[in-house]
């Protein structure tokens, strides 16, 4: 586990250092002293978001025993995003910044938990979760959350500025006007959540087995599932609260990492986390480069790029699953 963690951190550090060299000022190379703190901040925030979504994806896929599970597809991201927006709606500007940030995190977590509970309950049948039903229910929860989100925007268009960019928040992106309190609180939630998930990672190997087999190995599978789901929801909600729902990172990264390090969750979790962090840092760097090319008037939200990458990947996975099931018949 420690060796995987060290290796993954090293790979991420190399990629992140490369991303620090790419900026919106048009110059490629190590930035000057005045720009460096802002460049590092944006790379770290992007990495934090990617890492959290990928780690949550690993846990959802293991616990739900579904290769298509991902915070975005399960409706967790849209639920967290919706409640986070509601917090903005009701939050009093008189509140201190740390309380505002904490309230936003709490609301996002409630939204994530509510969505995952609905998806989990509606797709369970005789204590078994149907993989396709799970995704269908996730799609419906996403659609309902998305509609409520748009309804709030139409009713309160002034939230476009309050959220630090309504459109960016809707499709998922790195916000440029986050407070330090928001950033630190999200980092703390992700850090603590990740440590819990790392401690559970050995048992997560067993979670992928049937209940009988897991209990035979002495693992209290129900408790493990609830702790895993709740912690993964906290981790994903805490970043969705500051970025909006960035799609497919939690789907793509665990699968790519599984191909590289295998299926042992103790190695998979650090690898997917590092890959998620690197992927989003690179996506953000690309969006910064694109904004310099006069192709776009404003910076492209990274959610658009991850969607372009993740959509075809999702279809590939579906096709692969279908081919395998046909081959097994």
């Amino acid at each position: 586990m420690l060796a995987s963690l060290a290796g993954a951190t090293l790979v991420w550090a190399i990629v992140a250092a490369g991303c620090v060299c790419v900026g919106s000022t048009g110059r490629v190379g190590w930035p000057g002293v005045e720009v460096l703190p802002y460049r590092i901040e944006i790379v770290l925030v992007a990495s934090l978001i990617g890492a959290a979504l990928a780690a949550a994806g690993v846990v959802y896929q293991a616990i739900l025993r579904n290769p298509l599970a991902d915070p975005y597809l399960l409706g967790v991201s849209s639920g967290a995003s919706l409640l986070s927006l509601l917090w903005y709606l009701g939050a009093l500007s008189a509140l201190s910044l740390p309380i505002q940030a904490a309230g936003q995190q709490a609301f996002a977590f409630l939204g994530a938990l509510a969505s995952v509970a609905v998806v989990f309950l509606l797709s369970s049948r005789r204590r078994r979760i149907e993989p396709v039903t799970l995704i269908l229910v996730g799609v419906i929860v996403n659609a309902v959350n998305g509609s409520l989100y748009l309804l709030i925007f139409f009713r309160h268009p002034e939230l476009v500025s309050r959220g630090g960019g309504g459109f960016t928040f809707l499709v998922g992106g790195i916000q440029s006007n986050l407070t330090r309190q928001q950033e630190w609180l999200a980092a703390a939630c992700v850090g603590i959540g990740w440590i819990v998930l790392a401690c559970l990672s050995g048992q997560l190997n067993v979670a992928t087995l049937s209940e009988g087999e897991a209990q035979g190995l002495g693992v209290r599978i129900h408790r493990l599932r609830w702790i895993g789901l709740t912690t993964a929801s906290i981790v994903s909600a805490s970043v969705v609260a500051i970025s909006g729902p960035i799609g497919f990172v939690g789907l793509v990264c665990p699968h790519l990492s599984r191909l590289i390090v295998g299926r042992d969750q103790r190695r998979l979790l650090p690898a997917a986390t590092a890959l998620g962090a690197a992927l989003l840092a690179v996506a953000d760097a690309i969006s910064r480069v694109l904004s310099q090319q006069s192709l776009l008037k404003t910076q492209l939200p990274v959610g658009v790029l991850t969607g372009l990458l993740g959509g075809p990947f999702f279809l590939l996975l579906l096709w692969q699953t279908r081919r395998r099931s046909e081959g097994a018949m």
Binding site: V35, V160, T168
Partner: peptide, 10 residues
């Protein structure tokens, strides 16, 4: 929607 703080810092 977005502010480029690194350009502003420069």
């Amino acid at each position: 929607q977005t502010i480029d703080w690194e350009k502003l810092a420069q």
